[in-house]
Structures are given as structure tokens and as C-alpha cells.
Design a protein around this nucleic acid. Structure first.
Length: 572
RNA sequence: CGGAGCGUAGCGCAGUCUGGUAGCGCGUUUGGUUCGGGACCAAAAGGCCGAGGGUUCAAAUCCCUCCGCUCCGACCA
């Protein structure tokens, strides 16, 4: 391909609305252009890379035995009502009506469609196990699209769904996809790590997210250098060491006036004590009933863990009136000792078990209690303690006891055991060999294709631009034809282009009448993995110059034009 | 959905406070000189100043309404 025959428009300056490097580079290198907030057009270079990632995904899915299909973007509301998600997905889903006032969704995912499809197509155990997938555009009405393709309203996603006769089969399907994902990301030149994640509405289901570690990542990941434990912060556990008792014996609790001090920070400053000396008490409403949660003063409640522990369907912080009614005080002065509502359920983080000598809210505005012994002064029982806080850097790894570090990650894929949540709702059954009706066991598996494109850039760039892994580069090789007007030099470039194309290499020839500096800058910005320079001066000095994008200029190899193909191939 | 900021040429921005008829850099086009890491000179094209309404002799500029975008937070398969 000749540069002048395709459409490459690079920008010298960063786009004003881009925040992170990969977003800036996507636009500057001419891969995408914004159409509107969260909506992007892919230009030829971006399209080529997107297709290469798709192709890798497709090949690995096929290799794993999954079958490609495609289902409509536009999905009838009936399917979503079957699982109740028409309502529970809420405003995240784009909803539209046809002229007959029938409701449709622009698919944000496709569990319903695929389950319904499998129900219609599968009737016998002989057809199972089955994994089907598609690569299709998905739509989410994001509250805040940001970071370019990372969080957009429309994105390309590969979603796969497995159907099995039993739990063991579902397990095999799960790990089959898990390993396919390892291959996909590895072939994309990405270091993606599987981390344990929360199953959301799916209960204790096994699920892993694949994350590309990057400072720009939106998810926090707890990471143990000791044993390799990796978990999304929503899920991450810690080993809670028992609280130390005060010595030799605790005084009875007493009231302290703390006028105007609402937050732990304020009370801690007022009493001149560290936040750890306090117990932070928050009132939530779980399935319509208020619940108080106690955590150490310097820690945050993990809503996901709390929701799971309470077995609640809905969970949110209580409003001020509810807090007042439950405790007798306004937020900022509430605590687990004698709340106004004596039947208020109280739970506490495991690290508070045995805690003594703590300061808690007095359930009376402007007052706190000191020297509180949780066992002595509250009705907390052993069963009310659980791991309920967000893991922090330095916490103890639950498996090996080493300290945990916190990293940031970009989620590029997730594998998920669904069980019978969807197949049950749709009565997606099959007949076993004894003519019994059985429900299929499902799993679902997603890869964010467009997001992966950006994650690759985020993980592989330098000050000059993108450094594409060869497998996903828009072109693997750029030939810098420095003297396009010189017929003999142009012929060298043409011959090399033809020879490389014959060898199956994607190559672009920069045949623009630009100065060399401009061409080099653009080549670095776009990040073609291998660069060949064909110039009159170089040819007079022995041949063409070959180097990798990732290499310093000093690594440049000068080779005779006839030998260039071999050199290039060895560098890819 | 709360808080903050911004909408002026394809891109990045100034001009707005203090109203007087539109500017800079990059990019684009033409000509010339250059030519191995984003050259220089000359000329040119390109704007309903986000939209609508109001004030005024006069509005990019002041006032009102709406829309869009970005950031922080909340939320998030």
C-alpha cells in the first residue's frame, strides 16, 4: 500500500479533550476521530488494527471449539422482560420503540438472545456442550463516557456463551475459554492478568477478569507479589488480624462532647487521636431495612462484600431521615451502642472482633463514646463479623500472609459462570439420555475488542508515539521512500514492497513528497513495528536501513536491498 | 445525577472582564528556495464566534433559555 493512496492524517498536537496517552495517540496517529461524546469513527489505520484483533479473537475462539454466529443489535424487550433485566438494567440500556410502539433495546450484552437461541436450537444432550459467540457492536448509555474507546457508548465486543449438561461440563467450558483468553491477549502482544472478580448478581459464581495493568486503568486490583493472588478491589479479601485488647483492662465507656465534629477526620483531630482509634458506623438500607455497618475509622466499607454478606438484593446508603430514625442521631454521631431502634441490625468488619477502647458515635448529636468494648457494650455476635472493608495497600494477603499492593487495571475480558440464571428463566432445557428434561448450565465470556485496541496502545507506547506489537499493527512494516522522485530509489522501494507482500507481510510505503524528518516523526507516531529506509544517500552507502520501532537508532542495520526481506522477516 | 470548566477555521488556542464588524500557530492549496528527525519565503482558501431569544445605534463580547463537550464525584457488564 502506498501512503498517498490511503487516508492517514496525523496531528501534531494533542486533541484537547484527551486525557490519557492512549487516547491522545489514537487520535494523533489518525486511527479514530470522535463523532460525538463516546462515539468514534475508525479511520483506515484504526480499522486495520481493529480487524486484526478481531481476527485473533476469532481464530482462538474457533480453535477452542466455539462457533461463530451473529445476533441482532436490536433486541426485543420481551427477551429482557423474561429475566427481569428490562427493568434492572435501568438507564444503562438504550431503549427504542418501533413505529408500532414496540420496545427494543440496543443490545448492551446478549445473554437473553443467546439463551433464547440455544433454547430454540438445542433439544438433546447430544448437541451439548455448545459454545457460540459473536463479535458485535454493543451499546451502553454510559453515565460518563471517557478515555476515548475505553468507556464509550458504542463498542465492539466479542461475547461467547457456553451451554453444558452439568456442572463439570460447565467447568470445562469455563477453563477452556479462560485459556483461550490467555492466548488471545498474548497474541495481541498484551500482558493481561487474570484476576478474581465479584460475581455481581450471580452470587458466588466463579469469575475472572482479564486486566491490562496500567496507571490509567479504571479498576483497582489487589495484588500479592508473594503468591500471585490477584483480585478486583470489589472482591479482594484480606486476612483480618484480631484487634488488640486494651491493657490491662478496659474502663467503662463514657460520653465525650465533640461539638461540630462530623467526620472521623474531624473527630480524630478534635480528640487528637489517630483514625484507627475510632469505629466508623454507617447506616445502609438493605432490601428496605436499615442496617448499621461498623468498620475501623481509617477504612472504607466495601459495598459489594456487604451486600453479599447480608444476602441483600438492593443496598444503598440510608438517607438522613432513616439514619435519624434508626439511631437517634444524625450521620456523624452514630454508633453501635444503644441505637434508638433497638432492633437495628448491626454488622461489623472482622478486624473489629474483640476490639476494645474504641471511640464510637454516641447516637446523640455532638457526642461520642470512648472506651467502648464492642463485645461488652454492643449486641454484636460472632456471626455479625465479616470481612466488609475495601482492601488497602499493605493489608495482609489472605493466602500467603505477605503484604498486598494495589495496582490499576484496564478490564479487557471477563469469563463468568452463569449457572442456570438465564437458562432457568428461559426454560432452556435439553433431554438427557433417560428422556428427562434438564436445564442447561451456562457460562458467558466477553472480550472488549475496541477497548483492547486502546489498552494495547496504553501498554505499548513511548514519548514519540505508539509501539505496535507486530500482530496487531495496522501495517507491520513501513518503507520510508525518502526520494520518491528518484526513479531508481522508488524502484527499490517498490520491489521491496512487492517482495514483502508476497511473503505475507503488511507493508506501507511512505511515498509522500515530504521531508525525511516529517516521515520519520509520522512513522514513530503511528508506530509501525519495523521501519525500512530507502533513500538515495543510504543506497549509495551500501543499502537500505532496517530497524525496529522499539529500537534505538544505533541498532539500525544496513543491508543490500535484495537481503532486506530476510532481515525484515527476522525482526517481525 | 451533583460540583467545576469550556464551546471562536480541519486541529490547538487568543480575543469576552472594559461592546465598535474576526485573529495566531499547526494543517490545507499555489509558486519558489530547501531536503536524513515535524524547513524557509511569498501568496491564498477556509468562520451563521454551539443554538434561540433579549438589551443596544452596534453583540464573539452584556442578560435569559436551551444544547453540546471536558474534568472531579456518584454509578457501572
Amino acid at each position: 500500500m502506498k501512503w498517498t493512496k490511503t487516508l492517514v492524517q496525523t496531528l501534531r498536537e494533542d486533541p484537547g479533550d484527551a486525557e490519557i496517552d492512549s487516547h491522545k495517540l489514537l487520535v494523533r496517529a489518525g486511527l479514530v476521530r470522535k463523532v460525538a461524546g463516546g462515539l468514534y469513527a475508525y479511520l483506515p489505520l484504526g480499522m486495520r488494527t481493529l480487524r486484526k484483533i478481531q481476527q485473533i479473537v476469532r481464530e482462538e475462539m474457533d480453535r477452542a471449539g466455539a462457533l461463530e454466529v451473529v445476533t441482532p443489535v436490536l433486541q426485543p424487550s420481551e427477551l429482557w422482560r423474561t429475566t427481569g433485566r428490562w427493568d434492572t438494567m435501568g438507564p444503562n440500556m438504550f431503549k427504542v420503540k418501533d413505529r408500532g410502539e414496540h420496545d427494543f433495546a440496543l443490545g448492551p450484552t446478549a445473554e437473553e438472545v443467546f439463551t433464547d437461541l440455544a433454547k430454540g436450537v438445542v433439544s438433546s444432550y447430544r448437541q451439548l456442550p455448545l459454545t457460540i459467540y459473536q463479535i458485535q457492536w454493543k451499546f451502553r448509555d454510559e453515565t460518563r463516557p471517557r478515555f476515548g474507546l475505553m468507556r464509550s457508548k458504542e463498542f465492539l465486543m466479542k461475547d461467547a456463551y457456553s451451554f453444558d449438561v452439568d456442572a463439570e461440563g460447565a467447568d470445562r467450558s469455563y477453563w477452556n475459554m479462560y485459556h483461550a483468553y490467555e492466548r488471545i491477549f498474548s497474541r495481541c502482544g498484551l500482558k493481561a492478568v487474570p484476576v478474581q472478580a465479584d460475581g455481581g448478581d450471580m452470587g458466588d459464581s466463579l469469575t475472572h477478569e482479564f486486566h491490562v495493568l496500567a496507571d490509567a486503568g479504571e479498576d483497582g486490583i489487589a495484588w500479592c507479589e508473594g503468591c500471585g493472588y490477584a483480585a478486583n478491589l470489589e472482591k479482594a479479601e484480606r486476612r483480618a488480624d484480631g484487634a488488640a485488647a486494651c491493657a490491662p483492662q478496659c474502663a467503662a465507656f463514657s460520653e465525650v462532647a465533640t461539638p461540630g465534629a462530623k467526620t472521623i477526620e474531624q473527630v480524630a483531630a478534635f480528640m487528637n487521636l489517630p483514625p484507627e482509634a475510632f469505629v466508623k458506623s454507617l447506616v445502609y438500607v438493605a432490601d428496605g431495612r436499615p442496617v448499621m455497618v461498623c468498620v475501623p475509622g481509617d477504612r472504607d466499607v466495601n459495598d459489594v462484600k456487604l451486600k453479599r454478606f447480608l444476602g441483600a438484593k438492593t443496598l444503598a446508603l440510608a438517607d438522613f431521615d432513616t439514619v435519624l430514625a434508626a439511631t437517634g442521631a444524625n450521620a456523624g454521631s452514630v454508633g453501635p451502642v444503644k441505637p434508638a431502634d433497638a432492633s437495628l441490625r448491626i454488622v461489623a468488619d472482622a478486624s473489629l472482633k474483640g476490639a476494645t477502647g474504641r471511640i464510637v458515635g454516641a447516637n446523640k448529636d455532638g457526642f461520642h463514646l470512648r472506651d467502648v468494648d464492642l463485645a461488652r457494650d454492643t449486641f454484636l455476635k460472632d456471626g455479625d463479623f465479616a470481612d466488609l472493608i475495601v482492601v488497602k495497600e499493605g493489608d495482609t494477603c489472605p493466602h500467603c500472609g505477605k503484604p498486598i499492593v494495589i495496582k490499576r487495571g484496564i478490564e479487557v475480558g471477563q469469563v463468568f459462570k452463569l449457572g442456570t440464571k438465564y437458562s432457568g428463566a428461559f426454560k432452556a432445557n435439553y433431554k438427557n439420555d433417560r428422556l428427562e428434561e434438564k436445564t442447561m448450565i451456562m457460562g458467558c465470556y466477553g472480550v472488549g475488542v475496541s477497548r483492547t485496541l486502546q489498552a494495547i496502545i496504553e501498554q505499548s507506547h513511548d514519548a514519540n508515539g505508539i509501539v505496535w506489537p507486530a500482530a496487531v499493527a495496522p501495517y507491520q512494516v513501513v518503507i520510508e521512500l525518502l526520494d520518491p522522485a528518484d526513479a531508481s530509489v522508488a524502484k527499490v522501494a517498490d520491489d521491496l514492497e512487492a517482495a514483502l507482500e508476497a511473503a505475507g507481510v503488511d507493508v506501507i510505503v511512505d511515498d509522500r513528497a515530504e521531508r525525511p524528518g516529517v516521515k520519520f516523526k509520522d512513522a514513530d507516531l503511528i508506530g509501525f513495528p519495523v521501519r525500512v529506509v530507502a533513500g538515495a544517500k543510504g543506497l549509495a552507502n551500501g543499502g537500505v536501513e532496517v530497524k525496529r520501532r522499539s529500537e534505538d537508532k544505533s541498532m539500525t542495520r544496513v543491508v543490500a536491498p535484495e537481503a532486506a526481506v530476510e532481515t525484515v522477516m527476522s525482526l517481525l
